[in-house]
Structures are given as C-alpha cells and as structure tokens.
Amino acid sequence: MNQIPPVNLARQHQLIREETEAAVLEVLSSGRYIGGAVVSEFERQFASYVSVSECVACNSGTDALYLALRALNIGQGDEVITTSFSFFATAEVITRTGATPVFVDIDPQTFNIDVDRIESVITSKTKAIIPVHLFGQPTDMNAVMAIARSYNLFVIEDCAQATGARWQGKPVGSIGHIGCFSFFPTKNLGACGDGGAITTNDRAIAASIRTLKEHGMSDRYRHDAIGLNSRLDTIQAAILQVKLRYLDRWNQQRTEIAAIYDRLLSLLPGIELPQTLANSKHVWNQYTIRIKDKEEDSQPYRDIVRVKLQQMGIISMVYYPIPLHLQPVYKDLGYQTGQLPTVEQAAREVLSLPMFPDLSFEEQQQVVYSLKDCLN
C-alpha cells in the first residue's frame, strides 16, 4: 500500500517543471537576484489577482503581518484582537511590535474567529482586528468590517492559507485595510522557499511598508525608521509568476477533492465534516474534519486515530494542538483553560487529511477506507 503524504510538492513540480526551470534559469542568466523587474512584475500581477492597487512582496507571511502592523503604527500599549486558533505567527507579530494580542473564541463550524464575540473584548486600547481565513475559508468580513467602522479600527486580513478565496465575490486581501499572504511551499500559491506579500488599496500604507522592509530606508543610505530586511528574492518571484497562472485551476481541483471527501465520508460515524459558509469561496488549503472525543479518554481520541492512520500509510496533520491563548509564552496574559472552550475543543478534535490538487480518487478512497478501519 502506498504512503499518502499530506501534500505532494514533487508531483506538482513535475507538471510545471519546464516552465519553472526556464523561469529560474532566466533569472540566473540575468545576474539580477534581488529586486528588479521580475519582482515588480509579480507584484503587479498579484495585485491584479487580488483586485487591489498595491502589492508589496516580502520575505514571508510572518513578515507581511509584522510590516502591516508597523505601517499602521501599532505598538507599545496597543491591543490587537485576533483568533486563538491559528499558527503562532498571527500572535507573535503583535507581540513583536510591543502590542498585546487579545484572543477570541471561534465559530465551531468554520474554525474562524467568532465575530459575535469581538465587540465584547474591545477597549480604549484596541487598534486593530486580525481575522484569519483559516484552512482556506474566509471569515465573515461583512461583520468584521462593520465592527471596525463602528470603533474606528484597522483590519488586517491574515490570508496565509486562503490565496484565491473570496467573500461575497471579493478576493480575500482586498476587503480589510491590508491583506497579508504567505507563499510557504505548502500554501495554495507556494514558492520553493519562503515568501510573502502585503496587499492594500492605500498608497501611503504601501509606501510605508516598502520603506520598512528595506531597513527603513526611504532613499539610499537614508533611514527614517527602524525596519528590517524582508525582500522576496527574484528566483522566488519568477517561480510564483509561473504558479500564479495555475492557481485558479489548482483551487478548483481542491474544491472537487473536498466534494469527493464529503461524499465518501458522509456516512462515517464519530466524525464531523468541514462546513462552508454560503457567502464564501473556500479554497481548501486543508480539509479538516473533527474526530469526536470519547469522554473516558484523557488523550484526544483524534491522536489515537492519527497514529493508526500513519501505521496504514496515511499521513494526516493536526492544526493546531495548543491554542494560542494557552501557549507557555503567553501565560502572563492570564488566560485559563476553559476560557475559550470552542477553541480548546477544536484543538483536541481537528484532523487534516491529505489535500493537494493532484490527489487522485484512488488515493482518496485509500484515505477514507483507512479512516473507516481506524474508527471501527
């Protein structure tokens, strides 16, 4: 029986190998490895894809979030509201600016921030909201933007897992004041290394980010701010230009794979399938089910199932076993176990099955049959 990984990047590369290698060789032959026309052209193309006027490429999705916060002058004494169910970078960047993350529970169906709970944690120190479009599904951006307008707050969309997703027809990254994207290799639009981008319709914000990502340098050797070195290198930009042409096709394949999973898994007891909001276009960076806990077990039943799956050649993933509000580094914030119960339950139950555009029907059958055997 073949092992099925959570993602197969080598298989994807074989499909676009000639185009990708030609693009890389062209960069190598040019001798221009940092910046230049290739990076500028990718920024233009990605801005067009997201339907915004400005795109600034950078080193990673983490840097994109950090640069966004810095460009909005968020720092010491400020608070930023976000979900507790996300990759650590979402909160880490808030702390790096000197601000304090304020964590909110999640919607049990979408795993995204529970928009009905945001207002209850707004204070005079609140400056921004960071909704995360987790696993490829957009947050309810109508609700988020309405709250932001009422309280004069900035909205930074964390689009790391959702490139190509849409909320009511609008691309994620074009709805809030700033959108932040990751091009980590496993993302829907992935580089062959790290990479990220910031999108906005605000020219002044984009100009500030361009300065900050180049050591705070507004002109050669003139530094107006303490910035950082966060450039997208030219080879990655060239690869991303190639992959961007395929992104909508790959996202459609992910959607079709998710529909097949839904059909094959619908009758299995003890699991809950992912839900999609009617107003959203989900792009399925992950296909994440719930393995319902057994009350008598102190260990999550999900973990037992995951080990059994691995023994059968199915490599699944857990995103994320420790919620952000319970991370050791944030114990001084005073959050207690049980304070955000929906997040904590999800952390015990979620399991992401193999998901990539070239996953075959036969491989999906193998995943489902193996899961059925584990649950039995």
Rank of each mutant, 00 (worst) to 15 (best):
A128R: 04
S150N: 15
G193P: 00
W167R: 08
N142M: 13
G173M: 04
S174I: 07
C159T: 06
A165K: 07
V155K: 10
A160C: 13
L134A: 12
P171N: 14
L153C: 05
C192H: 09
A160Q: 13
G190T: 01
M145A: 05
A165I: 06
I156V: 14
G164H: 11
P185E: 02
Q137E: 14
M141N: 09
L153R: 08
I147Y: 11
C180A: 13
L189T: 02
V144K: 11
W167S: 11
A148N: 10
P138V: 06
A143H: 13
F184Y: 14
P138L: 09
G190C: 00
C180E: 00
H133Y: 00
S150Y: 08
G169P: 04
G169D: 08
A148P: 04
A148I: 09
T163H: 09
H177W: 07
K127A: 07
V172D: 06
K170L: 12
Q137S: 13
A162V: 07
S174Y: 04
K127S: 03
F184A: 14
T139M: 06
V172Y: 12
S182H: 05
Q161S: 15
N142Y: 13
P138F: 03
F184H: 12
V155R: 12
F135H: 14
C192M: 01
D140W: 05
H177D: 14
G193E: 01
L189H: 03
P185G: 07
I129M: 10
P138N: 10
A143C: 05
Y151K: 15
R166G: 10
K170W: 11
G173S: 08
S150G: 13
V172R: 13
C180I: 00
G190A: 01
C192K: 03
